[in-house]
Design a protein around this nucleic acid. Structure first.
Lengths: 193, 193
DNA sequence: CCTACCGATCGGTAGG
DNA sequence: CCTACCGATCGGTAGG
């Protein structure tokens, strides 16, 4: 149970994302965080510069995970349908493997500072574009119905991103099965014929 | 532009849900709220008992709207497919007609006090059960594929509830069209054959 | 990583 | 709806 082998900065991040998920970023005080870790509040500042630093670590760390999962799929030579299915499964796996971070990512990104916020929005647009290009490709090849492209991608993200709200490790199906189920529901609703 | 005709309590609620949506419930202070309204912070307490009162008004008010929209559809004699389509459209219309309240509803319900929180969860379960029963009915009649019922409903809610994140009144399609598009994507992915 | 502490701000009350 | 104010708590710093 003790995880003394990880460094303190990671430890802080992990405890923080649990608390942020449970109570929200703003409602979690540095005193709460320090108390949960077992050190004095002021000691946190030996490892981080500010509260927002932690939020940045969480948000940009997870953004990086999403890209790492999706990029190789997008660059591959698979069919649009297979790409979309795999991208959905990969995305949902990142979420289910990082439930605390995902909750913070989706809820609390707006509490990032002005500069980080801008960077965050840019990354998110770039990531959405990955999915948009798969959908576009599929429409061009007539394997996807020609629905409004932006709308279609938003619905795909909707179905994927809500996962963190209800997924419970252990009690649910495993993440690959869930990803494939979501993909099934979406793709079979998209396909020509 | 002036809406002096509504009473102050409603005025407070409306301004509050704008601020809560933008900055979050916890990050919005009573001083922010009073400043936006143009009164002194202490004056708010002539109209409300506590900050959480406002959150309760918003959350339970919207819950009521959801039920009012869905109940007549569920009680009707339409086919499961038609019921589901109409319930989806109705749900999305409630969201798009109450974007501020919806954002608060989905983000900040967990900041309700213990008692309200319990009541909220119960209402939410009851509401989900409305959709679950439509899906169950559809499966029994073999018009919906026999997927895990709970999972299917969660995916439906996912696709519906994310709407508040991206819907922009005016610039988007109207809410009925959007609801029907979401219904199309979901139902055509659910139907036998 | 701790003790000691800062100025700012919080939700809310008393009393009119 | 206002003035005046409360105790509590906030994020963060100084200095060791």
């Amino acid at each position: 149970m003790e995880t003394t082998y990880i460094n303190r900065k990671d430890h802080i991040k992990q405890v923080a994302q649990q608390l942020f998920r449970k109570n929200g970023y703003t409602a979690t005080s540095m005193r709460n965080l320090a108390g949960e870790i077992g050190i004095e509040p002021a000691s946190l500042y030996s490892h981080i510069k500010a509260k927002e630093d932690i939020l940045q670590q969480i948000c940009f760390g997870l953004a990086n995970d999403f890209f790492s999962a999706a990029n190789p799929i997008c660059d591959s030579l698979m069919s649009p349908e297979e790409k979309l299915r795999r991208a959905i499964v990969a995305h949902i796996q990142v979420i289910t493997n990082n439930l605390d971070a995902s909750a913070v990512f989706f809820h609390d990104w707006r509490h990032l500072g002005t500069e980080s916020l801008k960077k965050f929005r840019t990354l998110r647009s770039e990531y959405e574009e990955l999915f948009r290009s798969i959908v576009r490709e599929g429409m061009a090849e007539c394997v996807f119905r020609k629905v409004n492209e932006k709308f279609m991608v938003l619905t795909i993200f909707s179905a994927m991103n809500w996962t963190y709200e209800w997924y419970q490790p252990g009690t649910n199906l495993n993440s690959e099965v869930i990803g494939n189920n979501v993909a099934d529901m979406l793709i079979n609703g998209l396909k020509t014929i």
